[in-house]
């Protein structure tokens, strides 16, 4: 038996009846979703289904029209909530990396901790180098993003998010822009982070990763969550017809 109070403390991210409209387009339909601390949730669905919109509402890059969204106990529906406070604790990794083009790899990682957390310079550099080593790009510390391969860029981007010592990480199709031979390097880094207990929400088409790492799989289509299921159960037999079709399509390729 789980007491309700305890349950509430466990939730890192909680959507309650969230609706989003872009003018007349209904982008998110009655989203109810809870992600507990330490959980890894993979979000899948066809393109245009709303998975990016969903994940981007979590750190306030997208707003929503109705409902409630609690992230790390902050209420995103409240206009007084300081989004920067949420973003300090919830990092994001993007499909197109979004590294700062005018900064070196090391500066990319150190900038936000310096400006936002006022971290001591020496400590900041030590942590940045340690993170770069752990994602395997320490030798590129003084390079600029344009000198890196896609896989290296994405690993730097992951290190940049980790440098904020976040409580949760959001991944928005982190391997979709990568050449096939670089995907595994990035996925391996993500697996390592997952095993270290990070709360993760991952939008991806990498079913192998989902099968191996995810605690839960969310299938979304037309802005609606159609399945929210334990990963092993989902992959064995998705209940929804659209989820079955989607899976059979993407696993074929």
């Amino acid at each position: 038996m789980i007491a309700p109070k305890e349950e509430k403390e466990m939730a890192m991210i909680e959507f309650k009846n969230v609706e989003k409209y872009y003018d007349k387009f209904h982008a998110l339909k009655n989203i109810n979703l809870k992600v507990d601390k330490g959980e890894v949730v993979v979000v899948i669905g066809p393109s245009g289904s709303g998975k990016s919109t969903l994940i981007r509402t979590i750190n306030g890059l997208e707003d929503f029209t109705e409902g409630q969204l609690l992230v790390n106990d902050y209420d995103l529906a409240d206009s007084k909530t300081d989004l920067n406070q949420i973003r300090k604790d919830v990092g994001m990794v993007f499909q197109h990396f979004n590294l700062y083009d005018n900064k070196t790899v090391l500066e990319n990682i150190m900038l936000a901790p310096k400006l936002v957390l006022k971290r001591d310079p020496k400590e900041n550099k030590e942590l940045a180098m340690r993170l770069l080593k752990s994602v395997g790009v320490a030798d590129k510390a003084e390079s600029y993003p344009r000198q890196l391969s896609g896989g290296q860029k994405q690993r730097v981007a992951i290190a940049r998010s980790l440098a904020m010592k976040p409580k949760a990480l959001l991944f928005d199709e982190p391997t979709s822009a990568l050449d096939p031979e670089m995907i595994d390097d990035v996925l391996n880094v993500m697996k390592k982070i997952a095993t270290e207990g990070m709360t993760m929400v991952v939008v991806t088409h990498e079913m192998g990763f989902a099968r191996e790492v995810a605690d839960r799989v969310i299938f979304i289509d037309n802005g609606e969550i159609l399945e929210d299921e334990k990963a092993d159960v989902f992959f064995k037999a998705p209940k929804e017809k659209r989820a079955q079709q989607f899976l059979s399509k993407i696993i074929k390729h």
Partner: peptide, 14 residues
């Protein structure tokens, strides 16, 4: 590129 601002904001910067 818009991604530069997005990356920085998601990283916690004002």
């Amino acid at each position: 590129d818009d991604g530069q601002m997005e990356g920085a904001r998601a990283n916690g910067m004002t």
